[in-house]
Design a protein around this nucleic acid. Structure first.
Lengths: 229, 229
DNA sequence: ACTCCTCAGTTTGCATGCAATTCTAGCCAT
DNA sequence: ATGGCTAGAATTGCATGCAAACTGAGGAGT
């Protein structure tokens, strides 16, 4: 289950995988804005490959919901509409809650310590007001909890949904109060994990995600969903 | 959200979609057994298309977990190993539980009646001992509950996982007792849905899926996981 | 002026060709 | 006989060609 450090990473990656990952990153980072038309010829030139692997990447990203395929008219980066975002967060909440339960039951002490270490890194970033750094470790913590649930299907499902949410991160102008609260919640989550307290971690994670949802929704209502060219 | 009956179904489907659906059906129905090597040339001949759309289908099915891509060595139908199956059912349990909650809150009375109708069809099949018919309506009920949650992301996620589980259906030689119990559980689920009783439906669905999980696992331990050529 | 039509340019969807990799079988050495 | 090596066949990964679909600019008709 844990192939984290395989022996032979010699393997050359297929082009279509490379293309998929590159495109996904571009979209998640917002460098390809929602609504952007993905011109095959243009992208093949920029990425240095041919249309076949690129088109395969389009199909995969469409399945992930990051792009939308218009028959005979190509692909566009999908809009992050608030409804969809809210729906995604609700599902992720359920998944994280389940993951927390399994992590309490299955994670090793070493793995929990690993999460604890990330937690302190996150605290450091919070203390110095580094929002980007905070998000990075915040993400890492949530991913690790899901990963250390020991349920690979759960992890994969979560990852896929997560890509969609990360796109919305730019709008995370969260208030200082909400930020402080989120950090406190993380502290409790970690405590519950350390104590292997299943009911408590389920409640905490559900609540944490619900907070995130309403915070993101509030932000979305404030920003009038900038349309892309 | 509900595009069930669009006005113009004139649209001709792209070949790669057709290929994906055909292949998925073949795999889910077990007509392509786990382990089967998917030879591109052979399949293009059988499906009457060229390698490009077929290869696109392979990538999608790989993302769904139905096939496994071996770099430079093609694709094989993935094995349904018990661990993976159990993991999938655990995730589906969490999703259905969430779906039940939303369905209680959001479904119209008409939608609930639609589910009720399916329920009685299922009862009829149970009464006459028609296992295949039972499964069909059982599936339909679970899908409707998730659909009428009103959360499209949840529905899509569920659908994808469901494809993997349906492959294991052949081994559902469930005992008469378990069958009767499952039918009883369905009755309670429907009642809770009708009463819009959120905590109850969550508990019932979680439990129902957990039962399914252990039943499937027991069956898997009995059958020694037939290896395919 | 407005609408509808036409036709060239562009872009996608699919088929096919070519090189690289993997597989198979047979041979040689031990 | 067994194990390893090698040449040929088969198969995949990617690039490219071609026809169909879309776009949109310009002109005819009202």
């Amino acid at each position: 289950m844990d192939k984290g450090q395989d022996i032979a990473p010699i393997a050359r990656r297929p082009l279509h995988e490379e293309a998929t990952d590159r495109l996904r990153d571009l979209i998640v980072q917002g460098r390809l804005a929602p609504g952007t038309r993905l011109n095959e010829r243009l992208l093949t030139a920029q990425l240095g490959l041919s249309r076949t692997p690129l088109r395969e990447a389009f199909k995969l990203l469409a399945a992930e919901g990051l792009v939308e395929l218009l028959p005979n008219r190509g692909a566009i980066v999908s809009q992050m509409d608030p409804v969809r975002l809210a729906e995604t967060l609700a599902v992720m909440g359920a998944l994280e809650s389940l993951a927390g339960e399994f992590a309490c039951l299955n994670a090793t002490d070493g793995q929990i310590n690993e999460i604890r270490s990330l937690h302190f890194e996150m605290l450091a970033n919070h203390a110095r007001g580094d929002l980007a750094g905070y998000f990075k470790f915040n993400q890492a913590i949530h991913l690790k909890i899901v990963k250390y649930s020991g349920n690979a299907v759960l992890y994969n499902t979560y990852l896929q949904l997560n890509a969609n949410v990360r796109r919305a991160r730019y709008m995370a102008n969260l208030s200082q109060e909400r930020w402080d609260a989120a950090v406190r919640e993380h502290g409790e989550i970690l405590a519950a994990l350390g104590a292997r307290d299943v009911p408590r971690i389920k409640a905490l994670l559900s609540d944490h995600l619900a907070q995130k949802l309403s915070s993101v929704l509030a932000e979305l209502r404030a920003t009038p969903a900038r349309q892309a060219a």
